[in-house]
């Protein structure tokens, strides 16, 4: 099973749009651990996930084929 990852701002510079295999990943908390291991840069940044265009506030189940967005805060004006 796989999910699609999209990202924004600074994060898109090191996590390009891609599909990842989520074998062994069944929820967003586990996905976070996986992402921070695969892309250590995000572990020192504030970011939020959205699962199928909904902000992830609490650990949420992933069943496959979802689109997960990773976004940092923007401050520029």
């Amino acid at each position: 099973m796989e999910i699609e990852i999209i990202s924004f701002g600074k994060i898109s510079e090191f996590i390009p749009r891609q599909k990842i295999d989520i074998t062994g990943i069944s929820d967003t908390d586990t996905l976070k651990v996986h992402l921070e291991k695969a892309f250590p840069q995000i572990s020192t940044m504030k970011y939020k996930l959205a699962l199928n265009e909904k902000l992830v506030q609490n650990n949420t189940l992933i069943s496959g084929n979802e689109v997960v967005a990773i976004m940092p805060p923007f401050s520029g004006g």
Binding site: K10, M45, K46, K48, L55, Q57, P72, P73, S75
Partner: peptide, 16 residues
């Protein structure tokens, strides 16, 4: 704050 409860540290996110 529902999006980002805690502000980033200085230098964490570059501005313009």
């Amino acid at each position: 704050r529902d999006l980002f409860p805690i502000p980033p540290q200085p230098g964490e996110i570059p501005g313009c």
